[in-house]
Simulated scan of single mutants.
Amino acid sequence: MKTIYKHHLFWPLCVLAALMLFNFIYSPDFFSITLQNGHLYGSLIDILNFGAPLILVAIGMTLVVATRGIDLSVGSIVAISGAISCLSISKASDQNMLSLILLSVLMSVGLSLILGIWNGVLVSAVGIQPIIATLILMVAGRGIAQLITGGQIITVTSEKYSYIGSGSLATLPFSIFVVATVLLIAALLTRKTALGMFIESVGCNPVASLMSGIRAHSVIISVYMFCGLCAGIAGLLLSSNVSSADGNNAGLWYELDAILAVVIGGTSLNGGRFYLLGTVVGALIIQTLTTTIYMIGVPPEITLVVKAFVVLMVCLVQSPAFRSAIALRWKTRHYPGEKEISRHVS
């Protein structure tokens, strides 16, 4: 039992279960799932579907954070990716051509990889602090997305493109399979090869890892490239789900939600050991919290305040120092003489 209590997934799963229980008490049909026209519908399905882009971004952010870095540009990359794909599709006379959809997806993914490499080069080769290096693209990238869209919302009518974000496969949203594929690839690369050990080594001590023969610069560029790829795919999911691209609002604040998901999942911002499954649970907590806030009718003007307060409580519950302080305070209050007795005995 003590081992389970100390597991990095224990508290995140407890928080997720508490949110689910609250939703069930507030709305008894929260767990109901129906099958209509070969598609599953329900609140749980919506959480997985709408949370898929955030999970993707958070997976990429996990590896960046493990190297003691940060990527503030993921929201802008999400917007650029969606803008490029929708723009290229909207220019065609026949928007349902499969070759056009594939070309648009490849363009978005390719540009996202380039932007990720750009961040990695600034951090590893140029030596700029990660928060500053990625802040550059965070600001410039949002402007680039608006230039691509011309400051307008680009809409598309392609059914094949909308399938990426709103289609179903085996009665489940297709986005779930996209996330599962990316998560599986990331897990295999980091847990079944030496790459995961290299990432943790660079995060713990980049100088020592370099002295031991690990190409720290290549590792850092690789994780930022992967993070850009995840953000680019997330942009495709978001834009295809609504069949439009909004350079101003698409992916807005995704970088902050992704960082919160990583921290809630147990990965330290100081770098080192990382937990992909913990990040997925953290992203699900954030998405479930968002769904809960909308369901209970919290006014929009205080939604972010409520969200921030709950996330703060989650982080405090996860903190060993905070839990120890609470336990010590409770113990001192209920057994005031125990501390004095221990002092005399010692």
Score class of each variant (00 low, 15 high):
147 L>K: 03
98 L>D: 09
163 Y>T: 04
56 L>P: 05
135 L>M: 15
19 L>A: 11
208 A>M: 15
70 I>C: 12
258 A>C: 05
328 L>R: 14
3 T>W: 12
84 I>R: 07
50 F>P: 00
296 I>R: 06
125 A>S: 11
278 G>D: 11
266 G>F: 00
286 I>S: 04
23 N>Y: 02
164 I>F: 15
95 Q>S: 14
271 G>W: 00
151 G>M: 08
96 N>E: 07
236 L>I: 07
122 L>D: 00
178 V>Y: 04
309 F>K: 07
55 I>E: 00
35 L>H: 13
140 A>F: 13
345 V>M: 12
317 V>C: 11
91 K>W: 11
344 H>E: 12
58 A>M: 03
114 I>D: 02
70 I>T: 14
95 Q>Y: 11
91 K>P: 02
179 V>M: 05
206 P>Q: 10
185 I>F: 09
141 G>T: 09
248 N>V: 03
314 V>P: 01
41 Y>P: 01
317 V>I: 14
322 F>T: 10
136 I>C: 15
306 V>P: 01
239 S>H: 08
75 G>H: 07
321 A>N: 09
223 V>M: 03
287 Q>L: 02
306 V>H: 01
181 T>E: 08
112 S>K: 04
289 L>V: 05
327 A>S: 08
141 G>W: 06
159 E>I: 07
177 F>D: 01
248 N>A: 15
125 A>G: 00
186 A>Q: 03
149 T>G: 12
